[in-house]
Design a protein around this nucleic acid. Structure first.
Length: 481
RNA sequence: CGGGGUGUGGCUCAGCUGGUAGAGUGCUGCGUUCGGGACGCAGAGGUCGUGGGUUCGAGUCCCGCCACCCCGACCA
């Protein structure tokens, strides 16, 4: 097969593109910046959606759907919001062959159209909190796009909540960023640093933005999810007030939070290797592929393979058999490694007579013999669990060994291409902008994860590496996607 | 938007100083194979991105347009 993946060492970007295309996760379309998500890629999204949707519902949220089109007048209601998003919007000017009286923006995010509805639904403190999530597509006319990481149209979920007090809104913001953290770590096996964004990096229209940041294998940072405290900004813009218990009128406090198909890009960039995709078992729609070695009594081998498959399925393992005869076992091994199937079982006549099969783990390549008896499913389940844990551990070790604490700007400059930098910052936008201009590195996050804070003594005062002025805390710098 | 690149079978690309379309891979059929991307034989498949120009003749030269990709400035 000619489909060779460029090695990560040779060209990381090309590796990523080759992998996405040859594993059939996504394809370019003829529409600028828009990709086709192919079944293999969409399956990952469906697994993500299922887990996230369950977590949202467990925290009291419900799903709804709002229009794709947003009247220009809505977009213009919140000043920071329009400034942040208008330049990258697609705008519809005609409909039904006629020029529209008012232009319609294709949503880049739905705060405005949702708050136009919330205004109608909220009158009393009894209507609060309002906890709604929407699964949708959005469009941002990005100048430069990259498969999954930044496309003109992408799929995401956006939660939009309304609360009666700032405390309750803040609690929601934290609750949801923690849901994202849990999801990233437990499902994606992706360690993340949770914390706040600086003023200049926050969402257009938010008072405060919280995020989770992850390290990719090229040591760059990727923002994997955000949760915004919108204060009363949108409530004021849409004149959404409620009557309190005491009978007074107050503007509603709001939050919004989202993750997108970018997570698929994060998953690829964090775990995969030169052979192809490596999927954490919890996000693999196909967890075990059984490859029968078709020689000798083929019929018996194929039957045994299917018997094993049925047995695994009964234990809740997503297994399948590839008993097609047009491709050799070697071809199948390579193909399913490319597609990231977590475990491969090889079974041939030799194994059947020894009452065993060979199990190979995708992440490490390790092969081991498993006995073909009632313990097989249990062995596979524990192998999947071990794999999930060990992928997380490996990613965490990688991040830790590529995170450096520095005390001077010279050190900063010499290490910034090697990973994350933990350093003191004087808290000013000027310093942040200067460092960005000089090094292209940005402040990714003001960490709030307790173990991270403890590990790097984040809250210990010191002096800013750039200005030498006093600094209350350390922050995380990195180059990012 | 600035810089660079590319448009030729499904895919990746070759095609020089113009002479009428090629490879690898994939696809279809048959047979032999099968424990790390097997092999043989026989097939199908292209108005060469698009519009104009030069020429007896254009995939090839010239001009315009369009699209996509890559590198920057902006962003989940």
């Amino acid at each position: 097969m000619a489909e060779k993946i460029t090695s990560r060492e040779t060209d990381y970007s090309q590796w990523y593109i080759d992998l996405v295309r040859s594993a059939k996760l996504a394809d370019y379309s003829d529409i600028r910046g828009c990709m086709v998500i192919r079944p293999n890629g969409y399956a990952i999204w469906e697994k993500m959606q299922a887990a996230l949707d369950r977590m949202f519902k467990e925290t009291g949220h419900v799903n709804a759907y709002f229009p794709l089109f947003i009247p220009e007048s809505y977009i213009q209601k919140e000043a920071d919001h329009i400034e942040g998003f208008a330049p990258e919007c697609a705008v519809v000017t005609h409909g039904g062959g006629e020029e529209l009286a008012e232009k319609l923006y294709v949503r880049p995010t739905s705060e405005t159209v949702i708050w136009a509805s919330y205004k109608k639904w909220i009158q009393s403190y009894r209507d609060l909190p309002l906890l709604i999530n929407q699964w949708a597509n959005v469009v941002r006319w990005e100048m430069r796009t990259r498969l999954f990481l930044r496309t003109a149209e992408f799929l995401w979920q956006e939660g939009h909540t309304a609360h009666a007090s700032p405390e309750e809104a803040q609690e929601e913001v934290l609750r949801m960023i923690n849901v994202y953290k849990t999801f990233a770590e437990e499902y994606m096996a992706l360690p993340v640093i949770m914390g706040r964004k600086t003023e200049s990096e926050k969402f257009a229209g938010a008072d405060e933005t919280w995020c989770i940041e992850a390290m990719m294998q090229d040591k760059k940072a990727l923002q994997a999810g955000t949760s915004h405290n919108l204060g009363q900004n949108f409530a004021k813009a849409f004149d959404c007030q409620f009557q309190t218990k005491e009978g007074t009128l107050e503007y509603v406090w709001a939050t919004s939070w989202g993750v997108s198909t970018r997570l698929i890009g994060a998953l690829i960039m964090a775990h995969s290797d030169d052979k192809g995709l490596v999927l954490p078992p919890k996000l693999a729609s196909r967890q075990v592929v059984i490859v029968p070695i078709l020689r000798g009594d083929k019929q018996a081998v194929v039957e045994k393979a299917h018997t094993i498959c049925e047995e695994l399925k009964k234990s809740g393992i997503h297994a399948f058999v590839d008993d097609s005869e047009q491709n050799s076992p070697g071809w199948k091994f390579a193909e399913y490694e490319l597609q990231g199937i977590p475990v491969r079982l090889e079974i041939g006549p030799r194994d059947i007579s020894n009452n065993i099969c060979i199990a190979a783990r995708r992440d490490t390549g390790e092969k081991q013999k498993l006995t073909l008896d009632g313990t097989l499913a249990t062995s596979i389940l524990s192998m999947l669990e071990t794999m999930q844990q060990s992928m997380f551990k490996r990613a965490l070790d990688f991040r830790e060994s590529n995170t450096f604490e520095v005390a001077s700007y010279d050190e900063f400059k010499s290490l910034i291409d090697n990973g994350f930098i933990v350093a003191h910052w004087d808290g000013t936008e000027e310093t942040e902008a200067k460092i960005k201009e000089e090094t292209k590195a940005t402040i990714r996050v003001l960490p709030e994860t307790p173990d991270f804070i403890a590990h790097y003594s984040i809250n210990e005062p010191g002096v800013c590496i750039y200005s030498g002025k006093p600094s209350k805390r350390k922050v995380v710098f990195a180059k990012s996607y």
